[in-house]
Amino acid sequence: METMPSARVMGDMVLLPNGNVLIINGASEGTAGWDLGRNPVLTPVIYRPNNPIGLRFEAQNSSSILRMYHSTAVLLRDGRVLVSGSNPNAYYNFTGVVFPTDLTMEAFSPDYLHPRLARVCPTIVSPASHSQIGYGQPLTINFRSEGRINRNLIIVTMVLPPFTMHSFSMNQRLLVLTHENGTQPEVTSLGRSNYQVRVTTQGSPILAPLGYYLLFMVYRGIPSQGIWIQIK
């Protein structure tokens, strides 16, 4: 068991394309409900499940906007997280209350979007966005990445966008696609920084309900821009 850097209630947790988890928004005291929270938490936290115990939580740059009850956060196609809202009041009260209603939006950028990592970031060439796939089918992805790559550091993920409200991201899930029989994705060099990876889609709606997913190529923990894929 690990201890978070600070107490947090009414927080939002977002699964990132590389398997890490963003914990954002909320308060350090009180509970959900009208005017029941105190001491807003302004510092997001990244949880890295693959790090050694004791090194999994990492505090990020703080925001200046208080986001408590009725705040929300959702993953965007470019890897940022859209953060919005805050209304711990029974009505829309913009003045005369401890924590005024806030309808602004901002974008949180995880560290994998740092400009120094742009050369490493893969770019999906095909399939086209909004392609349709079925269960248990082979999926071939062509992508570009500058320089020589380590094939063992490539993963393919699919993120099901959730319905987010009241600190719950309903139906949120992240799927890691493998090659046949659960083996490492098969990667082939096509020359001139072009590569091809072969994976197999999930075989059951229990793990992957029908609908639209964001598909990401992830190399060394750095995701591409996502493309929309429909499981049909």
Rank of each mutant, 00 (worst) to 15 (best):
V21K: 09
L22E: 06
I24Q: 07
I24E: 01
G26I: 04
A27Y: 10
A27C: 15
T31L: 12
D35V: 11
D35C: 09
L36T: 09
G37E: 11
N39E: 15
N39W: 11
N39L: 12
P40T: 01
P40W: 01
V41Q: 07
V41K: 04
V41H: 00
T43G: 02
T43S: 02
T43V: 08
T43Q: 10
P44E: 00
P44D: 03
V45E: 06
V45K: 00
V45T: 13
V45R: 01
I46M: 04
Y47S: 00
R48M: 13
R48A: 13
N50V: 02
N51S: 14
N51F: 14
P52Q: 11
I53G: 06
G54A: 05
G54K: 07
L55P: 02
R56Q: 03
A59E: 15
A59Y: 08
Q60G: 06
N61W: 10
S62V: 08
S63P: 02
S64N: 08
I65L: 06
L66V: 12
R67H: 04
M68G: 01
T72I: 06
A73Q: 03
V74S: 13
V74G: 01
L75H: 04
R77D: 06
D78L: 03
G79W: 02
G79Y: 02
G79T: 02
R80W: 03
V81Q: 01
V83N: 06
V83T: 13
S84L: 09
G85H: 09
N87K: 12
N87R: 15
N87L: 07
A90F: 15
A90Y: 15
Y91P: 07
Y91Q: 15
Y92K: 14
Y92P: 05
N93Y: 11
N93K: 12
N93E: 12
N93Q: 15
F94Q: 10
T95F: 14
T95G: 08
T95S: 14
V98I: 13
F99K: 04
F99L: 14
F99V: 13
F99A: 12
T101R: 04
D102A: 04
D102C: 08
L103V: 05
M105D: 00
A107Y: 10
F108K: 04
P110D: 00
D111V: 00
D111G: 07
Y112T: 00
L113W: 01
L113Q: 08
L113H: 01
R116I: 06
L117K: 05
L117N: 04
V120H: 06
C121A: 09
P122H: 06
P127F: 05
P127N: 04
A128S: 15
A128N: 14
A128C: 03
Q132L: 05
Q132H: 13
Q132G: 07
I133H: 09
